[in-house]
Amino acid sequence: MALVSPSIKATTQAQVRASITRRDRNIGGLVLYVLLLIAVATTLLVLFTLLARLFAPALPVFRDRGLSFFTGTIGSNPDKVGIWPGLYGSFIIGIGVIVVSIPLGVAAAIYLEDYAQNRWYNRLIVINIRNLAGIPAVIYGILGLTIFVGWLEPLTTGKTVIAAALTLAVLVLPIVIITATEAIRSVPQGLRDAGYGVGASKWEVTRDHVLPYAAPGILTGTVLSLARALGEAAPLILIGAITGLLPATSLDGPFTALPMTIYSWSSKATPPKSVLGFDNVAAAAGVALLLLVLVFNIIAVIFRNRFEKQRIGL
């Protein structure tokens, strides 16, 4: 009768004990577990090596230069350069993202979640947004080069930080829309019904009930997209952020941004007499960018946690 092993029907205490205390020689399982551990450990090791290799050359810069590294300008002497133009450019880009893509993105999300009927053109918009989110950043650079640098030159005066800000605002727009849509979708229908029940109009319900409830979720997406915009370099190369020597901090002239500073310093040869190398200042600028992006990511995580708590009613 035994289908698998004859011992399995053993029922005396000794037989049962023998069969269920059999040592498990599970070599395959052990191998799998060790391989997985190696994968995780390698991933963590890569990250820590990266951080170590970024911070180690950066430390002398912060030690020797102190604040002047943040207020100095770009140039050809690594003992004197600073990231001020980069910070300025990144700051304006951040403003651009906040001013352009957040209102636009949230409005689009409100439309898609609360106003749009299930028609083919609305479904097309949703599919389109998902595709936009997957397009390589460098292609947005081509778009920016043509539209914001070229067609809209009267507005942006060409290869300026305004063109860069608009380009990156467009780049993160799909992320803002997707995260805002998810936040609005999680608003309980009961909350909307309660608003309609007391005679509020659609817009009043959106303004007074839906948006406040979805706000932390929308903020999470906003902050994440800011972090993304600040770290992006490829589109800036396309629209002509400068890598040279000009101390550029204006809205209508040549510009740079923090990631571009890292990019240009990374491949510059250090002049023979300088104490610090371009390696060092590139790493230091990298640390500055990484911390900036990290701070925004941490803020996003805090918002997200608060949002989750609110959703489960804590």
């Binding site: 991933t43 963590l44 890569v46 990250l47 090596t49 990266l50 290799r53 970024l54 050359p57 972090a227 600040l230 770290g231 992006e232 370099a233 490829a234 990631p259 890292i262 990019y263 990374s266 491949s267 390696d279 590139a282 790493a283 990298g286 960018l289 990484l290 992006v293 990290l294 990511n297 995580v301």
Partner: peptide, 21 residues
Amino acid sequence: PIIEVLAGMPSVVVGYFALKF
């Protein structure tokens, strides 16, 4: 969260890491 740090890593920083290490 550590993996998320890696996810938020600006590509230019990884470019530097590839170039220098």
